[in-house]
């Protein structure tokens, strides 16, 4: 049996009170719920405050470049589908610098879990606007508020046919742990956009602001209903629905559609010399 203590407890570089702490704890809880031991999991992150999260638990980790967590995670999963692969980073990393990979990954549908700590600012670089910054958010770089309108990743993912799209809130840790566990279990790409207060640079979307607005989806909510999912995803204002917004299993994951992976993982496969000789003979 895997327990939360298997994932350890480490000192972090985060500001006291940061929303990253409960997210880290929720992710550990989710791994326990999925009975995944540290050695079975690979976290891939980018660069930012959120991207440091995998350093603060026991697991395999590839902490790559800003914006590039998803392609590394995709490659790692294709090479060894036995690994549970989780791409974890901030909103700037996933939706800004890595925006093209985010779109492509939804279409490609690898069996990876994408966890986005969405604090609606660039934390590590000290508070500039991110793609999800609310309209009117004043920052040192955007003294009149962002010139680009706010991006809704959850709605986009639903619209593009992602199989699993959820919105969580750092202030509801147990609920978040449940969503993340479901996301990990989903076969195919799963997105969990996690509303994360940044106590240092986002004075608008605070814990209190979210607590007033976040509502857990009702028990009879049907995440397989795409129209409903889209409407729910678009609801972001006085009320913010929290939970698994969209869940569909009609699209097989990328790995299941690649014949070369049918015999098993690529890792450690011996060279088939007979097949290779056959390849050579094509060029006679």
């Amino acid at each position: 049996m895997v327990t939360v203590s298997d994932f350890g407890n480490y000192e972090t570089a985060w500001c006291p009170g940061c929303g990253n702490f409960p997210i880290l704890d929720a992710v550990k809880q989710a791994l326990v719920l999925c009975d995944l031991a540290p050695r079975d999991v690979l976290f891939v992150s980018g660069i930012g405050q959120a991207a440091k999260a995998p350093h603060y638990l026991n697991a395999n980790v590839f902490n790559g470049l800003h914006g590039r967590a998803i392609p590394v995670a995709t490659g790692a999963k294709l090479a060894n589908p036995d690994l549970a692969v989780i791409a974890e980073s901030g909103d700037g990393c996933m939706y800004g610098e890595g925006g093209n990979h985010f779109l492509a990954a939804i279409r490609r549908n690898p069996d990876i879990t994408v966890l986005v700590h969405d604090n609606r600012v660039y934390g590590l670089t000290k508070g500039q606007a991110s793609p999800t910054s609310p309209d009117g958010l004043v920052t040192k770089a955007q003294p009149n508020g962002p010139l680009s309108s706010s991006f809704n990743p959850v709605a986009l993912a639903v619209l593009m046919g992602a199989g699993f799209v959820a919105r969580g809130f750092a202030g509801m840790q147990e609920h978040l742990a449940g969503i993340v566990a479901e996301a990990i279990r989903h076969k195919g790409l799963s997105l969990v956009d996690i509303l994360q207060p940044c106590v240092s640079f986002n004075k608008v979307n605070t814990y209190a602001w979210y607590q007033e607005r976040c509502r857990v989806l009702p028990g009879d909510y049907d995440p397989a209903d795409k129209d409903l999912a889209l409407r729910t995803a678009m609801t972001f204002g006085d009320e913010i629905p929290i939970g698994i917004i969209c869940r569909r299993t009609d699209r097989p994951p990328l790995e299941d559609r690649i014949p070369a992976l049918a015999p098993g993982p690529l890792v450690g496969r011996p060279l088939d010399r007979e097949a290779l000789q056959g390849v050579y003979e094509n060029y006679l």
């Binding site: 690979l42 891939v44 590839f62 790559g64 470049l65 590039r68 392609p71 590394v72 995670a73 995709t74 490659g75 790692a76 999963k77 294709l78 090479a79 060894n80 690994l83 690529l266 890792v267 450690g268």
Partner: peptide
């Protein structure tokens, strides 16, 4: 980046 991820995994 995909190639680096695949290689990290062992391909």
């Amino acid at each position: 980046n995909m190639a680096i991820g695949a290689s990290f995994s062992g391909a």
